[in-house]
Simulated scan of single mutants.
Amino acid sequence: MSTLTAAPIIAILLLIASNVFMTFAWYGHLAYKSAPIWAAIFVSWGIAFFEYCLQVPANRIGHGYFSAAQLKTIQEVITLVVFAVFSATFLNEPLRWNHAVGFGFIAFGAFFVFLKV
């Protein structure tokens, strides 16, 4: 596989990993509400560092194959998928039909970003 054809796969894999860190940084503290807010902030920032270490290379590698708008759209769709799994498993918050419909509309909107016009 050449570097050019590997670029989109590598970028997407890095975006997935980045979003796992991001989701834990942004929402993981909700499972530990008894922890002081300052501790939640510092731990979240520490986790977010690793998110950036993956997000920045993902965008650098993916840009050129994907436009910036496409990269952002991929990132948002990945964020929703990762968040849905996180919310259901880590926070024990069930996903309901209205969540699925809302996420579906967002994914449908993402379709238009990738149209060749």
Rank of each mutant, 00 (worst) to 15 (best):
T3W: 14
T5P: 00
A6N: 06
A7H: 06
I10R: 05
I10D: 02
A11I: 03
I12E: 02
I12K: 04
I12N: 02
L14R: 04
L14H: 06
A17N: 02
S18F: 05
S18A: 15
S18Q: 06
N19R: 14
V20Q: 00
V20D: 00
F21D: 00
F21M: 03
M22Y: 10
F24N: 00
F24A: 03
A25S: 15
A25P: 03
G28I: 09
G28D: 05
H29M: 09
Y32W: 13
Y32N: 04
Y32F: 15
K33P: 01
K33H: 07
K33L: 13
K33S: 10
K33E: 11
K33T: 10
S34G: 02
A35Q: 07
A35T: 01
P36S: 15
W38F: 12
W38A: 10
W38Q: 06
F42S: 06
F42T: 10
W45C: 09
I47F: 05
A48G: 01
F49A: 09
E51P: 00
Y52R: 09
C53E: 02
C53V: 07
C53R: 06
Q55H: 12
Q55I: 03
P57L: 10
A58K: 08
N59H: 13
N59S: 08
R60K: 13
R60T: 09
I61C: 06
G62V: 07
G64E: 10
G64A: 11
Y65M: 08
A68E: 07
A68P: 01
L71D: 04
K72P: 00
K72F: 14
T73K: 03
I74M: 13
Q75I: 00
I78Y: 03
T79M: 12
V81S: 06
V85T: 08
V85R: 05
F86C: 03
F86V: 02
S87H: 05
A88S: 12
A88D: 03
T89V: 15
T89P: 00
L91S: 07
L91D: 05
E93A: 11
E93L: 13
P94Y: 13
L95V: 09
R96C: 06
N98Q: 14
N98K: 12
H99F: 14
H99A: 11
H99T: 08
A100P: 01
A100D: 03
V101P: 05
F103P: 01
F105D: 02
A107F: 15
F108I: 15
A110N: 08
A110K: 09
F112K: 08
F114M: 10
F114Y: 09
